[in-house]
Nucleic acid binder design. Structure first.
Length: 614
RNA sequence: GGUUCCGUAGCUCAGCUGGAUAGAGCAGCUCACUUCUAAUGAGCAGGUCACAGGUUCGAACCCUGUCGGGAUCACCA
């Protein structure tokens, strides 16, 4: 229970005692008192005026008197208009600080007996991870951590899109141009190697298409199918898919390969497994660098058939209907959407088919009360439809599904486009920020007398903190601009800034000894910033709850920054080891220790590690 | 065009279920290291919260409309 919640209960009871007024709990609003006023917490009494038929200042005055008289922890109040500012006793703050010091899991919520599955990352196996995946992974990971801290049992899952035409393109290009190379032979990370062949396919296809456009057949098609006044460039751009499916030699081969794959052709499967295994090795390395892992991997190649059974069940029970051409559809018009295809006329599965099957099997595997899908907002409509379909299918978990929909990541130069080669590669980005951290640290010389291994570990922590914080601090649902220059910044509102507050505290704690419990320290006159820090820390639990509930880690990121900022200011203004008295020193050491603890646990929930020095 | 998300300082972002004079960082200009880590702190400057109405004691926040931007509306994922 947080201080504010506790206070709410007291106000509720007081209103009843004083005026026999049973207020709606939600109507009680309590904030931290703004710094320009005297007091710690502020009760807003405007909402009570109507029921009590008294002017706001009068209510505040009476309530204030009553509270101060009744509550030992409250020692003073003042009223400004409809705001009742309450001041707490020093003993209260010291005891609150001790509560933090003695509970390593301060702010974490007890288990609530519910299980939630969080799906994130969900890569395709035909190319390496990029900046967009990083936002996804960081959001998924930190949301999972926050949910766990909020009392849930959490399963972290990814669905690997390991089959389909895309991977066949890479496979074909490898057969045609690969000369039997491997990650070892080429010295290229597995996922990057496969990505190269994917690109190779695309460029070859483009050449083939361009040549075809010059042929008699190409011209003929253009003349016959162009729209009124349509230029060649525009027409051929639009026609690309049709060309791939009907005329392209490479397209034909890729599709043949997909067919062979579906027929479980031995040679094709062997190649597919071999190439995918390279990709997984590559992904694994990137995940490790990012400090994330999964409890359960699902593979599209294993689950895509499961959906089909559910579709035929749904067809039998009238949830779906079949068109004349054999394709199967869901009618969602009763919930304000349109018709959605769930199975192609040739009986092969679409994205939706697979997702229906995956949701089902996950529930069978884990019995989750909830499932969270971390997927970009370009798929908002798809998930809305999926959730509706699962409801119609009467799936038991269907009402507890959430799409953590996040905005695209733009570059200062505009959108990331793989076709234009403006995609920021995840591994490159990680290497860059670590290098930047190394340069910054070297110029400071603070780490000169520790081993190279220890240094490297610290550079990694600092660099990744910069990168991760830069992305996580932004509200997930917002589209964000990723400026590579700013992402390696280590000053101001950044990960390293927060780490620095922690490191400063560790440095002090290394030089101190014999810490005494804060509540036993005979320290009388707490500074307002000292109280401010404790007040801030008291919110930690509420921030965890809020961030978990809203699936919004940026909440926690901003909180950690606020706390670090306040500590930096405190650090500058007051001496700790050479404080004016032994009592002040003891108190401030405990205060610093608590701040370090909250910063560390808070940042860990975001997947950001703290170095002991920097 | 339908649906949906967004619009806050030059730039990147906070701003709680509506609460006191809208906050940070970056960039710019000052200042503070013989001192517990200056990856820091203090200060200056910077705003028609896209616009117009409405709801109310009170609106950046809620409602309606307008303008601007993104996404989506595939037998793609």
């Amino acid at each position: 229970m947080t201080a504010i919640e506790e206070l709410k209960g007291i106000v509720y009871k007081s209103l009843k005692d004083l005026w026999e007024y049973e207020v709606d709990q939600d109507a009680i609003l309590i904030n931290e008192t703004r710094s320009e006023f005297e007091g710690d917490y502020t009760v807003v009494v405007f909402p009570f005026t109507k029921a009590l038929r008294l002017p706001p200042p009068k209510i505040a005055e009476m309530l204030g008197e009553y509270l101060v008289e009744k509550e030992n922890n409250l020692i003073a109040f003042n009223v400004i208009k409809g705001f009742l500012n309450l001041t707490f006793s020093n003993d209260y703050w010291k005891s609150s600080l001790s509560d933090i010091n003695t509970d390593k899991k301060y702010g974490f919520h007890p288990a609530n007996g519910k299980k939630v599955l969080v799906e994130f990352s969900s890569p395709n196996t035909n190319k390496p991870l990029h900046l967009g995946h990083i936002r996804n992974i960081l959001l998924g990971w930190s949301s999972a951590q926050l949910l766990e801290a909020a009392g849930y049992e959490v399963v972290k899952a990814q669905i690997v899109n390991d089959r389909g035409i895309a991977i066949c393109k890479s496979m074909l290009a490898y057969q045609l141009f690969g000369n039997g190379t491997t990650p070892e032979k080429s010295g290229t990370k597995g996922d990057h190697l496969i990505g190269e062949f994917y690109v190779k396919f695309e460029t070859s296809f483009k050449e083939e298409y361009a040549a075809w456009q010059e042929t008699a057949e190409g011209k003929e098609i253009y003349e016959a199918n162009k729209k009124e006044g349509e230029e060649e460039v525009h027409f051929y751009g639009r026609y690309k898919n049709t060309y791939f499916n009907t005329y392209s030699n490479l397209g034909l081969q890729a599709k043949a390969m997909l067919l062979k794959w579906e027929e479980a052709d031995e040679e094709t499967i062997a190649l597919w497994q071999r190439m995918n295994s390279w990709v997984y090795e590559g992904f694994e390395q990137t995940y490790k660098e990012l400090g994330v892992h999964f409890d359960h991997n699902y593979y599209e190649s294993n689950t895509y058939k499961l959906g089909k059974e559910l579709i035929s069940d749904g067809l039998a029970s009238g949830v779906f209907y079949k068109k004349d051409d054999g394709s199967i559809w869901a009618d969602l018009e009763d919930v304000g959407m349109d018709q959605k295809i769930v199975l192609r006329s040739d009986g092969t599965s679409v994205y939706m088919t697979q997702d229906i099957g995956t949701a089902h099997i996950r529930y069978e595997d884990h019995g989750c009360d909830r499932m969270v899908y971390v997927v970009g907002n370009e798929q908002d409509y798809h998930f809305e439809a999926l959730f509706e379909i699962l409801k119609k299918l009467d799936e038991p978990y269907a009402h507890e599904l959430f799409h953590l929909s996040y905005g695209m990541v733009d570059l200062p130069t505009g959108k990331m486009k793989s076709r234009e080669g403006t995609v920021v590669d995840a591994d490159d980005l990680i290497a860059d920020v670590i290098e930047e951290a190394r340069l910054g640290s070297k110029s400071r010389g603070e780490l000169d007398n520790i081993t190279k291994e220890e240094q490297d570990e610290i550079f990694r922590k600092i660099g990744l903190a910069a990168l991760k914080y830069f992305i996580i601090k932004v509200n997930p649902k917002k589209r964000m601009t990723f400026d590579p220059k700013e992402s390696v910044d280590m000053q101001g509102q950044t990960g390293p800034y927060i780490q620095n507050a922690y490191v400063r505290i560790q440095s002090i704690l290394r030089k101190s000894e014999n810490l005494v419990e804060a509540r036993d320290v005979d320290y009388k006159e707490l500074e307002s910033i000292e109280i401010g820090l404790i007040r801030k820390m008291e919110q930690f639990s509420a921030i965890i709850e809020d961030a978990a509930e809203k699936l919004d880690p940026s909440n926690m990121a901003n909180y950690c920054y606020d706390l670090a900022k306040m500590y930096h200011r405190f650090y500058h203004e007051f001496k700790i080891l050479s404080a004016e008295s032994e009592e002040a020193k003891q108190f401030r050491l405990k205060l610093s220790e608590a701040v370090a603890q909250i910063l560390k646990t808070g940042m860990e929930l975001l997947g950001i590690e703290m170095p002991e020095r920097m």
